[in-house]
Amino acid sequence: MIQLKHLYKSFGDKEVLKDINAMFDNGKVNLIIGQSGSGKTVLMKNVVGLLTPTSGSIFYDERDFCSLTKKERILLRREMGMIFQNAALFDSMTVLENVMFPLNMFSDSPYEDRVKRARFCLSRVNLDDADNKFPGEISGGMQKRVAIARAIALQPKYLFCDEPNSGLDPKTSIVIDELIHGITHEDNITTIVNTHDMNSVMGIGENITFICEGRAEWQGSNVEIMDADNKKLEDFIFASDILRQVKIAHDQEKKQKQ
């Protein structure tokens, strides 16, 4: 479980995050949604410690991240995995070496076991035949999957994904979403995903936080979102014609039931 309390972040006099309060549950896929430029990436960077909040606190199961010592923070980081918006694979290493990297760095098990674990992670993301390719030689979707494999290699307790399906076709996006959903539930991970993809919201959003202009406007599940009574959220979710029609149908159905 990760909890944010009164989180503020400004760059100079530009306030990007304003009083964010949110809860991210254990064993669930927690989504952060919002328009481009609303502050999702900045929020995630604050949570993982790549940026320091101007004020406010972040709790990782009772541990206050901002008041940890340097050493404790490094130890906590070994419980985190992160998938960046652009995958951020090490481009001088092959796919297998990328996935083995965290194991080589932090695991004391013998070489064979590390290779086995890396191969297992790769097979989990359905990438069995790309071991010796370099990141530059595989497609964007494959890179994202390698990034997932690398992030789960050390069995993290917290998994962060910044727009895991940006730039992917709808079908591949769904594959990635299902992967993240499956891994989260099987390993009981606290997963936080940044997205503005409506398929993900409806498909895997068990706990959704809606951010608008740096404020957390709404929190709930993908079932509740259909009936949410929030103008900004409605404008964002039902922006496209198709989804607007779904919403209208949903509302009519509800009226008939009453």
Binding site: V48, M80, Q85, F90, M105, L154
Partner: peptide, 14 residues
């Protein structure tokens, strides 16, 4: 700029 250094930091590598 491709965030590979961020990725190292997140893993808890110096």
């Amino acid at each position: 700029i491709t965030q590979q250094i961020d990725a190292l930091d997140i893993m808890g590598v110096n």
